[in-house]
Amino acid sequence: MTEFAGPLIGSSHRPRAWRFRSLLWIPIAIGSILFQVYTPQFISYLSFLEAPLLVTVHYALTRREPVHGLLAGCAIGLAQDAFSHNPIGLFGIAKTLAGYLAGNLSQRVNVDNFVIRFLAGFTFFFFHQFLYWALASALLAQKLAMDPVQTLVMSVLNALVAVPLFSALDKL
């Protein structure tokens, strides 16, 4: 127990400001899901934006911990699944992997760089969409349309949004 108790319970010794920022992520995550559910109803051209994924990726990148990233991705993904009529777990799996990989990436490169953030936004969006399509096709036998060109364009748009969004979230 004492051998690895430190890393597991270390969070209780974090500074108060750090804990406050941790709690701040909960409304941010809920807000991103509400944005995804509610905004396209009134501003249809914003439906390309995968706000929960961008929040997951930013959380994983700033924490620099794959486990934190995958847990955040899992929680946000499952909540997103709850608003779909598909079986729960598709978004969960896709975002878990995205969060894990983003956490791993943050340990290897400087993710404060704008170019890296743009590339991360682009890559993780495309990966997320492809993974969702693959899971829905393979596990649920759903005939989802996957247009590579459209997905690439949406990846670029999400990456363009990701850069200022990540900067804004950094300041919180």
Partner: peptide, 28 residues
């Protein structure tokens, strides 16, 4: 401790993914 920290991330990933796959399988 090194072994645990080395495999902790991948173990957590396998556990979380496995649980979600089981949840999916249960529903489907």
């Amino acid at each position: 401790e090194n072994d645990i920290s080395r495999y902790r991330n991948i173990a957590a990933l396998v556990v979380v993914l496995g649980a979600q796959f089981l949840l999916l399988a249960y529903q489907v």
